[in-house]
Design a protein around this nucleic acid. Structure first.
Lengths: 213, 213
DNA sequence: TAGATTGTTAATCGATTAACAATC
DNA sequence: TAGATTGTTAATCGATTAACAATC
């Protein structure tokens, strides 16, 4: 399972495979060939086989792939068999939305605490958590085995808070702040830049419109 | 500006260029070379020049790029000089979070209406909008020149609602539902699959951990 | 004019697709 | 055994980087 140098492009596709396999599983489909899956997902069968074989041989020649087995293997590759402890920094609309989204819990991502600097929010109950002041952040992280911090704060605060959390041992950030976090090599950052996404949509709309001239 | 076949990779990078140029602009930097920008953004100067030259020559030999001019040109390429009218379908936590995020408005993305099927939410005020029932959706779209629909509904509803909206003329979707929308070729979809993003983070954490064995 | 830096062509690298031998 | 489909190697395609002539 530990082949080196899995390309970024492959990693990007893994969750989508998992989603389709999950749906097949729910439909009680037992086996699927790369050809069938390729038609469903609208990618080439060749790519599917190449992608899977980055991690080992999950199929059987002449038969295809067992849906349940393949699903479990990909889930394992994605680390979904482990549990993670998360905190949310920033209890605004987005922070609350993420805290309330139940599906993350089911995948092993457990929200343990939520923090904000706005004292009007202190003590506010969000799901089963109470909003805590930023002054509690460092102690809480150390005491609760937190491994992922979700940043839903303005970009002006994000870099500073990230540095602070790195010092407390946090090694992974899910960053919704619209800025790049320049952290050490052993710290991982997954950015969700919503406005970038909206701009890309805008780009395609604009291009489509001008094509009709 | 209309060179064909701009690669996906380039489009993906455009919003990040805009962000850095915006920050330089705010710091009153007048000119920048591809070399300086490459150090700032941690990409190669060669890539920067190649990317910009997909859209025409924005620089001056021996001088570099004028920050203000380059910023404006990239904003134009991304269609940010146009205004868009959006509706949000799904007034849950995420829909409300997006509705309340002010920065989209500043870029020309105007939220005109928000809809939900939960009658407990009807009439609830979100920013300057009142949550409307789904039965109003089609008329509202036709009467308000809506060009982008934001889908913040469960995946079970998303495909059906998207089809309905396509019939009313909507040609662009910002899709937060965890499913692929299989729409016609002239309809554009920008997906934001938050759980996919979280799984990728999980993958990298897991890989880093097992490297330390 | 000399120096700097772009715009662009050529070289390299990596990812995708095609083909087919291995094998269930 | 014959048929099907994987796993894997080879061919192609596209994206990134390097190099440099054009030119401000």
């Amino acid at each position: 399972m530990e082949d080196k140098n899995i390309s970024q492009a492959v990693i990007l596709r893994l969750p989508r495979y998992l989603r389709y396999l999950g749906e097949l599983k729910d439909s009680n489909v037992e086996r699927i060939s790369s050809q069938e899956l390729s038609e469903l997902m609208k990618v080439t069968a060749s790519q599917i086989r190449q992608d899977f074989n980055n991690f080992g041989g999950f199929g059987q020649q002449g038969y295809g792939y067992k849906v349940n087995y393949l699903y479990d293997e990909i889930a394992k590759i994605l680390g979904l068999n482990k549990t993670h402890h998360l905190i949310i920094v920033g209890a605004g609309n987005l922070g609350q939305a993420l805290a309330n989204y139940m599906n993350f819990e089911r995948r092993g991502f457990h929200f343990k605490g939520i923090f904000d600097q706005d004292e009007n929010l202190y003590g506010k109950k969000i799901r089963d958590m109470y909003v805590q002041p930023m002054s509690e952040l460092e102690d809480f992280v150390k005491e609760n085995d937190i491994d992922i911090a979700v940043l839903t704060i303005p970009k002006s605060a994000a870099v500073k808070v990230a540095d602070q959390l790195v010092k407390c041992g946090v090694r992974a950030f899910w960053n919704f702040a619209h800025t790049d976090l320049n952290v050490a090599d052993d710290v991982v950052v997954e950015n969700v830049h919503l406005s970038d996404s909206l701009m890309r949509l805008s780009y395609i709309i604009t291009r489509n419109e001008s094509e009709n001239d």
